[in-house]
C-alpha cells in the first residue's frame, strides 16, 4: 500500500461510515428497511439530544465507566500479587494454574443470579462480578510475566549484588510490565463486557440498563444512539489504557 493511502486511511474510514449511514437512510426512506427495526441516521442523531435532555448520556456513561475502572483496579490489586505468588511458588502454581485456565474458559458472567441471591440488585454485585471476571486474565498474565523474566537480567542483578527488593523493583517488575499490560487490557475489556452485560440483564446501573429500558419502551432511535455510545466508551477505555502503558514504559 502506498504512503499516501496510509495517510488517507482515517479519511476513508470516515467516508465509509458516511456512506453506510447514507445507505441506511436511503434504504429506510425507500421502504426496504423498517425504521422500527433499523433506525436511520436522521432519527438517531436527534435522539442524542433527547437522551441528553433525559440525563441518559453523561450520567450512565460515568456510572459504567467508574464501575469498570473500580472493578479493574480491584482485580489488578488482587490478581497481580496472586500472579507473582504463583510464579514464585511452583507447588501452588501447579495446583491452581489449571483452575485459572478453566475459569478463563468458563462463562463466569452466568454466575450473576448467584450474586443476586447473595448481594441483591446493587452496585456491589455489578462491581464484584466484574472484578472476578477481570481477575482471571490479569492473574494469568502476571504469572506468565514473572515466570518469564530473561535470566540474563537476573544474572546482571546478581553480579550487582542487588537485594530482594531491588531485584523486584528494578529488574523483575520492569521486565514484566509488557505482559502485565496484556492482562490488564484483557481485564478492562472483560470488566466492561461484564459490567454492561450485567447492567443489561438486571436493568440496573449505567449504559446497559439504559439500552434495556429503551428496548422495553420500544424507543428504537434512542436505543441505537445509546448503543453507539457504548461503542465509544469501549474505544475510550482502550485508548486510555494504551496511553497509560506508554507513560509507564515508553517504547
Amino acid at each position: 500500500m502506498t504512503k499516501a493511502n496510509r495517510r488517507l486511511a482515517p479519511l476513508y474510514s470516515i467516508g465509509l461510515l458516511l456512506v453506510l449511514g447514507a445507505f441506511v437512510e436511503l434504504a429506510v426512506r425507500a421502504g426496504w428497511l423498517l425504521p422500527n427495526i433499523v433506525a436511520p441516521p436522521s432519527l438517531v442523531i436527534p435522539a442524542f439530544g433527547d437522551l441528553r435532555a433525559n440525563n441518559e448520556i453523561v450520567e450512565p456513561f460515568l456510572n459504567t465507566f467508574f464501575h469498570v475502572v473500580i472493578a479493574t483496579a480491584a482485580a489488578a490489586a488482587l490478581g497481580l500479587p496472586f500472579g507473582y505468588f504463583l510464579a514464585r511458588s511452583p507447588a501452588f502454581d501447579q495446583a491452581y494454574r489449571g483452575w485459572l485456565a478453566a475459569a478463563f474458559a468458563s462463562p463466569l458472567v452466568l454466575l450473576y443470579p448467584l450474586f443476586l441471591v447473595f448481594f441483591g440488585r446493587t452496585y456491589f454485585t455489578v462491581v464484584l462480578m466484574s472484578t472476578m471476571v477481570a481477575f482471571v486474565p490479569i492473574a494469568i498474565n502476571a504469572r506468565d510475566a514473572f515466570m518469564n523474566i530473561p535470566p540474563v537480567l537476573l544474572n546482571v542483578g546478581k553480579s550487582f549484588k542487588v537485594d530482594k527488593w531491588q531485584r523486584f523493583a528494578m529488574i523483575e517488575l520492569p521486565a514484566a510490565v509488557p505482559t502485565i499490560f496484556v492482562g490488564l487490557r484483557l481485564g478492562v475489556i472483560y470488566a466492561l463486557v461484564n459490567t454492561i452485560g450485567v447492567e443489561f440483564l438486571i436493568d440496573f446501573g449505567g449504559l446497559g440498563r439504559v439500552v434495556s429500558d429503551l428496548y422495553a419502551f420500544f424507543n428504537i432511535p434512542q436505543m441505537y444512539a445509546e448503543i453507539l455510545l457504548i461503542l465509544v466508551i469501549s474505544i475510550v477505555l482502550l485508548w486510555t489504557l494504551d496511553r497509560v502503558q506508554r507513560w509507564v514504559r515508553p517504547q
Binding site: 466492561l192 443489561f200 440483564l201 449504559l207 446497559g208 429503551l214 428496548y215 436505543m223
Partner: peptide, 8 residues
Amino acid sequence: PKIIFLPI
C-alpha cells in the same frame, strides 16, 4: 459487549 446488540 455484544449483548447490547440483542435488542437489535
